[in-house]
Design a protein around this nucleic acid. Structure first.
Lengths: 334, 334
DNA sequence: TTGCGTTTCCAAAACGTTTTGGGTACCATT
DNA sequence: AATGGTACCCAAAACGTTTTGGAAACGCAA
């Protein structure tokens, strides 16, 4: 049904070769014929078939986008969406198509993601939304398929990654509070067996030390990244050290819980206690006062991943770790 | 580099025909040889090339997903993301791949989306995030390409759509307030040149009439879907009719603005004034009190669109309008 | 012996491109 | 007249599958 190169050749009275050459910028086709061929092609509405092209060229110019748990990610939705947009837009600019691929459906079909990619001759894959303990991780690491992980710090022969500098991010957040002359700064961290918690703690400590302030263990409390946890942790912190003038939270959700408690306890924000969160979730800009926070450059993470992948694909670049600076968003809570 | 059907044939000592037949359930291959072929294929890690398959079969088993303004959609992000997940997961179950495609990318502005699809031999396309006045709309409507729109009420020869029942949704919201014995219910609508505003107004009026309550024009005020607009509209409404006991907003953002004003004006929610919004955005569950709202079944919209498209593709079903019921979420603000 | 079914296998064409290795005119030099 | 160069064009192979139309081998009935 669709019009092929053969139809164009016949209509223009030339060979298939000539049509192909006319389209692909070869020098050995006369101006006159070239014009005629292109005109005929346009008239017939000819579009060269990518699948035939892929077959003969042995490259599809398309990559997979592996999203873990595509349906059940209410928390990180916009995170994934923004990254997704970045990946796709940059990849499109670079001439690559992106095919979606989720672990949930792939698992249903009992086919590994590697098999999925080789069947389709995808040239590479970007992996996101996956946790370090995901069973797919092993496959990603071992794969001979070129891949880039988002927030997935695995570096192997064919596998690079892009993530955000959590140490630096936390440092920025605390430095911001220091610049507002706060000296007794509480820190509500997540559980310590998450990698980000360790990094953010480092950042908190580094910032204080840079300013010559001793780290006071009483000011540090651990929680679970969630709202209620933040609320309780804040209560405990205030009990222990009622003199804090600022609190840094390792997640926005905990910061929201904390603000709830602070307001209940009659502390004004930011006059009595300043608050800084982490993640830059949407809600932050709607609460009163609006939440100061440090977030990831989500769209940029996507574009970076896209560029890294294409670099590895086209210029045989070595896989590397791309660490992006965190993004400080200053609002009314500090 | 990748292992082909020829490699398998050679290794198993049969013709490529036999390998193909063994894989595709033909009856004319002996039990003994069939077992050997499959074993050899597994040993060699053979995966049939979809691109070669697509070429000879003249079908790619893959569809496009056209997303308008992929990068600049902060408001409706999770809406698109959830729909996207629904589309992809259902489509994967049905054996289709999905290729991303956005209107924004510079490269893709040079080439129409129809051309994009025919080049790749995509069998159909699902369109989302597009507004009725988008220049791409014309193309979608005229296309001979099979397509399904999300929230895009266009019905043509090859083009169906799925959207949410806005009349029914608004009706549900207002009925909920009526069931709480509210009788003077204000309505803060969006601008009237949006289709949804007209529908939601209809729903508001229908609900009141069903209960035998006259529609009071003084209780209806128009705004712009946004926070500040909702705030001002609420102020105006309270000025005009201080006796309202409930307000229905045509968007959550306006409801948030409204709640801000109500609290400033010293009205308790929901004791003095009950509030119901529309859209079910994430923020709604974090504000205090949590916002009652009516939303769309986002994931289900995706799966429905996927099923409709595949129905049109495989069973030659006629394009149709699929109208889903709205989703009432009752929280503390009402 | 011939003819006819089964069962199991295969050669070759086809799908729509790209690319290689020429070929034919034509003109300008020797 | 032969040679060489240039400008333009093309046939055919290749990419990795599926499918069509047999073919070979065998047994069985006439």
């Amino acid at each position: 049904m669709p019009v092929t190169i053969r139809d164009v050749a016949r209509a223009a009275g030339v060979s298939i070769t000539t049509v192909s050459h006319a389209f692909n910028g070869y020098e050995d086709v006369g101006d006159e014929t070239k014009k005629r061929v292109l005109q005929v092609a346009k008239d017939l509405n000819y579009r060269p078939s990518r699948v035939a092209r892929s077959l003969v060229l042995q490259q599809t110019q398309s990559v997979g986008l592996l999203i873990s748990d595509f349906n059940a990610n209410p928390g990180s939705n916009h995170f994934l969406f923004d990254v997704l947009a970045g990946i796709h837009n940059r990849l499109a600019e670079l001439g690559y198509d992106v095919t979606l691929l989720s672990t949930t459906t792939a698992r249903q079909q009992l086919i590994s993601y590697i098999d999925f990619c080789t069947e389709r001759r995808l040239e590479g894959v970007i992996v996101m939304g996956m946790r370090m303990d995901d069973p797919y991780m092993q496959e990603v690491a071992d794969a001979s398929l070129v891949s880039v992980g988002i927030d997935l710090p695995i570096l192997s022969r064919h596998c690079g990654y892009v993530m955000t500098d959590n140490v630096g991010g936390a440092k920025q957040g605390v430095k911001h509070l220091l610049s507002k002359n706060h000296r007794r700064i509480g820190f509500v961290n997540g559980h310590l067996h998450a990698v980000v918690s360790i990094d953010r703690l480092r950042g908190y400590e580094d910032a204080l030390r840079d300013e010559g302030i001793a780290v006071d263990p009483e000011l540090i409390v651990h929680s679970d990244f969630l709202v209620e946890g933040g609320e309780k942790a804040t209560a405990a912190l205030l009990e222990r050290r009622p003199d804090v003038t600022a609190i840094f939270y390792a997640s926005d959700l905990m910061a929201l819980g904390g603000m709830r408690h602070l307001q209940k306890a009659g502390r004004r924000i930011p006059e009595d206690v300043a608050v800084v969160g982490y993640d830059n979730i949407d809600v932050g800009q709607w609460v009163v006062p609006a939440l100061t926070t440090v977030g990831q450059k989500r769209y940029e993470m996507g574009t970076s991943a896209a560029e890294m992948l294409v670099g590895m694909l086209q210029r045989k670049e070595e896989p590397r770790a791309c660490v992006l600076q965190a993004d400080m968003v200053i609002r009314q809570s500090s």
